[in-house]
Computed example of a mutant assay.
Amino acid sequence: MLWIPVLLLAAAASVVACARLFRAAVRAADPRFRLTAGRGDSAARPLGLAETAFLVGGPARVAEVTLVAMARRGRLLLAHTGWATAVADRPADALEGAVLDALGPGLQLPVAELRAEVAASAEVRALGERLGAARLAVPAEIRSLVAGALRQLRRTVLGVAAAGLVSLLLLPHGGHSAAEVAGWFGLPLLLGAGSLVIARVDLAPYGRWATPLGAEAVRGAERHEALALAVHGVRAVHEPQFRAALTVRTAA
């Protein structure tokens, strides 16, 4: 009868994971975070490079486009070996300031490390907060809450399925048929899988960087060649040296 304690643990894990997802859904339903706001002035105003990058790919994409933009203006050297070296000593804007601050007094870092530090900078967080206030970006609090709950539920569903399989194949059933054991494990599995299906429909917008209003603004930006880097990322970088710098892995 060892399968019964395993079943109880699987059921408890499913209930906890579903409760966390329910809590995230309730939090996302707060009127302050509602993503179905009507069209406003923010949607009518053209997006800039950094704003488009955030809505498409989040902080990492903002860091990426900032590095390439600086390199194209001759303010930063991106070597094909994967190292970045500052040329400018004074930033032209806040995001360039984040790059120079991350480079530090040595004025040189591996591109992968520099990109990560810029993505985590206060300047990029401020950009996300401005877009969130304009209802173009999903608030970081809600996005993190929903993403964490979904990750836990997905792992739980896989864990319940694995526990059921182990119980069927390896543990004694104590007089119960395999169909009975499978049926009991099917209950927490159905609970978790059903919750995932519902969440995929109802909570999908909260797992993205852009709100529906922001996504509409990005669709307008896709027609502008100057914003191709923000929309498509490294695929839009034509310079071989810059592309190599952004994709090569280096040791600091």
Rank of each mutant, 00 (worst) to 15 (best):
R155M: 08
E117C: 08
P46N: 12
L171Q: 06
S195G: 13
R151F: 09
L158A: 15
T247C: 11
P5F: 13
A88K: 07
R45H: 05
P205F: 11
G214Q: 11
R151I: 03
P205N: 14
L100I: 03
P172S: 02
G214K: 11
A162V: 02
L55Q: 08
T156R: 07
V87S: 02
F22C: 14
G97T: 04
A63Q: 01
E64Q: 15
Y206D: 05
A179L: 04
L203V: 08
G132I: 02
V181S: 07
V124T: 08
H176Y: 00
P46I: 00
L246V: 06
W184D: 01
A43F: 08
G58A: 02
A119S: 08
A88M: 09
G164L: 11
V231N: 12
E239F: 10
V201H: 09
V99P: 08
D101I: 04
W209V: 04
A10N: 07
R20Q: 11
E64T: 12
R223V: 11
G159S: 03
W184T: 06
L103K: 09
E222H: 11
R72A: 15
A215D: 11
R39C: 07
D89A: 14
T36K: 06
L76M: 04
G74Y: 05
G97A: 13
H176P: 02
A140V: 00
V160N: 09
V166K: 13
M70D: 10
R73Q: 14
G104I: 11
R125N: 02
L67H: 13
L171V: 01
G82E: 00
T156H: 11
L76V: 01
D89K: 15
A116I: 07
R208F: 13
G106E: 15
